[in-house]
Design a protein around this nucleic acid. Structure first.
Lengths: 201, 201
DNA sequence: TCATTTAATTGACACTATGTCATTGACATA
DNA sequence: TATGTCAATGACATAGTGTCAATTAAATGA
């Protein structure tokens, strides 16, 4: 059912996407121009605009897969019956979140750069944030209902606090300017989150 | 000792700075062009480049005053002898940090936008981060030496965790998308930081 | 006072990038 | 074979940047 023409079109779009990814990695997002991309893809200038609205659009398409993976991590189940169990589940989710980002280090760097540059990509990232935060909010509500967590705290506020810390350490790790290992970071974040800096020790 | 010419020059630079600030507020950082600025300042196009290297340079100059104020908040003394006292000092510092940002709401929004756009401005902001983080690191070391804080935690890691939360809530408040009041946010952040989510209650 | 030097100001220019659109030509269709 | 369709194209209009030679007006000094 797919004729030569359609194959050709799909092929061209793929070529452009691959070229865009390569150029993004080599030059960064800001430095990349449409001309760089079409030159690498060996297509005419106008061809880029047949398949993509603009530079952002290339990255949005490339982001889709990673976005899906983040959404999966965000929606992991959380039904602990003890504090110990809760801590284990939390550590596990953080590890998945950070590992996923680290597996796509270069790509995440491009996304970081683009967030500050393109409102559409910022909105995409905000979507990921919102999914994690609402999922964590549910988790805290559950923990409160089981008398595991401090019932006086506002779940959505605590969820944001927790996610923001995770996100910032993620960017730190992506940039490679953390002196500590990922595991050390995970352990510390979790201890503070669950027990606090001034807890009994 | 200042002659007419020098006065003229200072006046022109001031005019440009005021114009830049106004245009940044009206159009945002990205949308603003040099032509917008010189048009508002009623100077020739080339004049902008006599006093400023480029658009970033305008904002860098405008940032200086706020940067100083952040540096002051970062270097507040911290020598508590009880946990209660520690908590009070922490709450106080956070309140000053968030208040300062909120007093300059529109300006902070511009800075946020520019951080993602200009590596130089990002570096400036990273400087503020670093000052806060190293100051908080010292505070934690002090608290550990007085047996107030968990001695097993790595101070610089905890400091980053704490500052990142503060920073992210600051941007939230700046954007006006927090449902909660600043005081609620401060209280929650501090409780989690010092006692943890799962602490005795 | 007037000629000369010095310095602030200027806009035209060269350059780079974007997004559009009329044109082209190869494939599909009858 | 003739005709229609659509992917591909690059020239063009537009918009922004940063530079620099020319201009203008103040400072200097004989």
């Amino acid at each position: 059912m797919i004729n030569t023409r359609q194959k050709q079109a799909i092929e061209t779009k793929k070529k452009l996407l691959k070229a865009a990814e390569a150029v993004f990695f080599e030059q960064g997002f800001q430095q990349t121009t449409i001309r760089h991309i079409i030159s690498r893809a060996q297509t005419g200038y106008g061809t880029a605009y047949v398949y993509f609205k603009n530079k952002d659009d290339f990255l949005i398409e490339l982001m889709k897969e990673v976005m899906e993976q983040f959404y999966e991590v965000a929606s992991l189940p959380f039904t602990p019956s003890t504090k110990k169990e809760a801590q284990d589940l939390i550590v596990n989710q953080v590890r998945l979140f950070l590992s996923l980002a680290m597996e796509r280090k270069e790509f995440m760097r491009i996304i970081k750069e683009a967030i500050g540059n393109s409102p559409v990509i910022e909105a995409n990232w905000q979507n990921i944030r919102d999914r994690f935060i609402s999922s964590i909010t549910q988790d805290i509500l559950y923990a409160q209902s089981k008398s595991l967590a401090n019932p006086q705290l506002i779940p959505s506020l605590v969820a944001r606090s927790w996610f923001y810390t995770n996100e910032m350490f993620m960017w730190e790790l992506i940039n490679g300017d953390s002196a500590e290992s990922m595991e050390e970071i995970i352990q510390h974040m979790t201890v503070i989150y669950t027990n606090g800096l001034y807890s009994s020790h």
